[in-house]
């Protein structure tokens, strides 16, 4: 069995669990609990260990998706999940500049622990006050447009949109291991 493991990370409420639910073919293994902290301002439940989703696309081929908890008190889970990942996507809510710094902290943590390819997924890009991709990339610490990972807009509720993002991530991973085809 050949398995590719993708990690979906990002601050609280960026849409990680929704992302995985939208694309998984099995019922997602979630470990959410009722939130009792500031998270409550955003949503009722929050992931405490990880979310797990799977796409089986051949008799011996599967994609595994792991969603991390958002709060940094679960950084031991970030560590466990990223160690075995082939690639990851950092989800950021484009209309909450408040969380860009937290996204940046997560990114620094991940980068230090794993050199695998990553892309940035922007959710809520159609909300009022949403920033554009170029400025979010800047806010996340990528001053050079030529040297930043791909940034894609995602509607985490739509299977097609999430599939598109996973394609972007897989192709980017591919490009890194191969000479680019396009």
């Amino acid at each position: 069995m050949e398995i590719m493991r993708l990690v979906v990370t990002g601050p609280v409420g960026a849409g990680k669990s929704t992302f995985i639910r939208s694309v998984s073919e099995i019922e997602v293994v979630d470990t959410d609990r009722r939130a009792t902290d500031d998270t409550l301002l955003l949503k009722k439940r929050t992931t405490v260990a990880f979310d797990f989703g799977r796409l089986q696309f051949g008799p011996d081929m599967a994609l595994h998706l792991y969603g991390t908890p958002g709060q940094s008190r679960f950084d031991f889970m970030w560590d466990i999940l990223i160690q075995k990942a082939h690639a990851y996507i950092l989800l950021v809510a484009a209309h909450r500049p408040h969380e860009f710094r937290e996204a940046r902290r997560i990114l620094t943590f991940m980068k230090q622990r794993s050199p695998v390819p990553m892309i940035i997924g922007l959710t809520h890009t159609d909300c009022p006050g949403a920033w554009d991709a170029a400025n979010i990339a800047l806010a996340l610490g990528y001053p050079h447009p030529a040297r930043r990972p791909p940034v894609v807009a995602i509607n985490a509720n739509e299977t097609a949109s999430v599939a598109q993002a996973v394609i972007a991530l897989v192709q980017y991973t591919w490009a890194g291991s191969l000479t680019p085809t396009t």
């Binding site: 050949e2 590719m4 160690q83 082939h86 794993s114 991973t173």
Partner: peptide, 20 residues
């Protein structure tokens, strides 16, 4: 870290996802 996946795997995966 993770064991690398083959190119045919990636190709199949992308093809599969495009169907979605």
């Amino acid at each position: 870290g993770a064991a690398p996946v083959s190119h045919s795997f990636l190709q199949n995966l992308v093809g599969f996802l495009k169907g979605k």
